[in-house]
C-alpha cells in the first residue's frame, strides 16, 4: 500500500507546490493592500486558511474517532491521530500568527476575547488528546479513551466558529462560511483568500497522508517486533509442558490409603 501511493503522493506534492506558488504570487503581487490595516492585512491570507485547516482537521479527527469507536478498525484510529497532529500544528500556527497580527492592530499580543479563548481551549483539548495517546499505555483502551476526548473536543468547533458573532469581541466577525454576512473584501481579496484556502487544504491532505503512512509503518514495526519476540521465545514456551511432565514423572506416587 505504501509503495503504491508513492507516485500519487509526488503528484499531489507538485500540485500543492504549484498552488502555494500561485497563492504567494497573488498575495505579494496581485492583491491590493487594504486601506485601513495596511500591508499587515496580508496576514489574512495565511491566518484564515490556517484556521480553516485546523477546523477541518478537528472535524476529521471527530469523524474518524467515531468510526473507530463503532468499528474498532485500526485505520480509523490512524486517520484520527494523523489529522490531530496536523490540526494541532495548524492550530499552533494560527494562534501564533494571530498574536503577531494582533500586536500592530490591537496593540496587544493576546486578549481574553471570546474567539481567542475558545480557540485556545480547542487547542489545549487536542494537545491533551495527543498527550493521552503518547503517555497512556498503548492498547485499544487508550485509543478508545483518546477517541472519546476527540469527539467531545469537537463540540467546541461551532462555538469557536460563531464566537465572534455571538459575543462582542475584538476579533472581526465571520468573513467566510455559512455564518458570514458580508466579508467586506474586494473581489481580488476574496479570490486570493479562496486560492489560499485551497492551497492550504491541499497541503493539509498531503501532510495527513504522510503522517498516516508513518502511523501504518509504526504499527507494522510493532507487529514485526511482536512476531520476532514470539519467534525467539517460542522454544522456551514449548519446553514448559515437557518440563512439567518430567516433574510429574519424577514425583513419587501418592499414598494409596
Amino acid at each position: 500500500m505504501v509503495s503504491s501511493i508513492g507516485p500519487k503522493r509526488t503528484t499531489w506534492l507538485a500540485i500543492t507546490a504549484g498552488l502555494v506558488l500561485l497563492t504567494l504570487w497573488m498575495i505579494f503581487e496581485w492583491v491590493p493592500t487594504e486601506r485601513n490595516l495596511g500591508v499587515v492585512q496580508r496576514a489574512l491570507y495565511v491566518h484564515v486558511p490556517l484556521a480553516w485547516i485546523s477546523m477541518v482537521a478537528v472535524g476529521v479527527v471527530a469523524v474518524a474517532s467515531l468510526m473507530y469507536l463503532f468499528t474498532g478498525k485500526r485505520k480509523w484510529d490512524s486517520i484520527a491521530l494523523a489529522s490531530a497532529e496536523t490540526g494541532v500544528l495548524a492550530g499552533t500556527l494560527m494562534l501564533v500568527t494571530g498574536a503577531i497580527w494582533a500586536k500592530p492592530i490591537w496593540n496587544v499580543w493576546w486578549t481574553w476575547d471570546a474567539k481567542l479563548t475558545t480557540t485556545a481551549i480547542l487547542w489545549f483539548l487536542y494537545v491533551a488528546y495527543l498527550m493521552l495517546r503518547a503517555f497512556a499505555p498503548p492498547g485499544n483502551q487508550a485509543y478508545r479513551m483518546a477517541a472519546v476526548v476527540a469527539v467531545l473536543g469537537a463540540v467546541d468547533v461551532p462555538i469557536v466558529y460563531y464566537a465572534a458573532n455571538l459575543w462582542r469581541t475584538a476579533h472581526p466577525e465571520l468573513i467566510v462560511g455559512p455564518g458570514a454576512e458580508s466579508s467586506g473584501l474586494s473581489s481580488e481579496m476574496s479570490t486570493t483568500l479562496l486560492v489560499s484556502v485551497v492551497a492550504f487544504t491541499s497541503l493539509y491532505i498531503y501532510m495527513l497522508v504522510d503522517r498516516y503512512r508513518v502511523r501504518q509503518s509504526e504499527l507494522e514495526l510493532s507487529d514485526l517486533k511482536r512476531e520476532m519476540r514470539n519467534h525467539l521465545y517460542a522454544p522456551m514456551v514449548t519446553d514448559v509442558p515437557a518440563t512439567a511432565q518430567s516433574l510429574r514423572d519424577a514425583a513419587p506416587e501418592p499414598a494409596g490409603d
Binding site: T33, R35, N36, G38, V39, A43, K103
Partner: peptide, 13 residues
C-alpha cells in the same frame, strides 16, 4: 491607502 504604517507592519508580516 492613508492609514498604513508600512515600516512597522512589514516586520510583523
Amino acid at each position: 491607502q492613508e492609514n498604513t504604517n508600512t515600516e512597522t507592519n512589514l516586520d510583523f508580516l
